[in-house]
Amino acid sequence: MPRIISVEVVSDTGHFTPLQLQPRAVLSLAFNGLAHWLREHLVSFPRLIAEQRTSVVILAAGITYEAPCRFFDGDGFSVRASLQARRQASRAELDVEIHGPQGRAATARILLCPVRIEDPVSLAASPAPFPAPVLARFRPDEVDPTSPARPLVALQEEVARHGELLATARRPFTLHRHLCEVADQWAFFEVPGFIGASREALALARGGDVPLLRQAFGEPLRRLEIELSRPYFWLEDGLVETSAYRLNDRLAMIHRLSSNLPGGDQHGIAVEIF
């Protein structure tokens, strides 16, 4: 069984909406779980980059909410994370469970692509499997040669095929530094904020004539899937294009992240199910 680290988190008000753990907080805590796992079982994140010239970029992330976990339910919750190298070490999968006072509150899965740091100053990098000294620190049951699943594809297809399109919206954003990580590249756990702003703007604008859109304000998010294909960097402009659907009398959203940068305009896709 892959090794698991467990981290106790004391609740603060910023972790939560009135309804549930913030999706941004779940992804951020999950990523911090990776940092804990690396430090305990591999090598600390800073040393992984500085000494092994290896890091990871995020290709996909997903959250499935389960038991209720609200701010006043208890004093805290635990984050349990495990990591596996996948597909000849050219991918890694982080599995995270968040346990609150009422049981497992959410699971999160983050798909990582190992990269080799080509320039230690700018941290510019290119995809490369984990180097042998790093891979050797995984246990045999933490190395899986198979390719990871892509749950977003099936979910997006289900929403687009079986859902009823209700409304669409476009919302631009600029990647300021508070949304970036150490390399002045976007922090993936900010994606729920970008798409959430677009979703709420759409619900505000059209919730009068499409009441189901207001479900986005009052119902907890049940599932989020994200796939990322290209990063944004500091001060770049992006666009969220949101399509809202009715799916089995629930609200579903497909968000497309794009930009006007040359070389392909798609940066990612996200699907939310309420």
């Binding site: 890091s55 740091i117 941290l123 510019a124 990098a125 995809p127 990580e181 390399a183 590249q185 040359p262």
Partner: peptide, 27 residues
């Protein structure tokens, strides 16, 4: 228009825009 590394000898004028983007960073 993307330029390959062996095309950097391409002539340009003062109004041409050259954009340098980093593909990914390992932060």
């Amino acid at each position: 228009d993307q330029l390959m590394n062996d095309e950097l000898g391409r002539p340009v004028g003062e109004d041409d825009e050259v954009m340098i983007l980093t593909a990914i960073a390992g932060g």
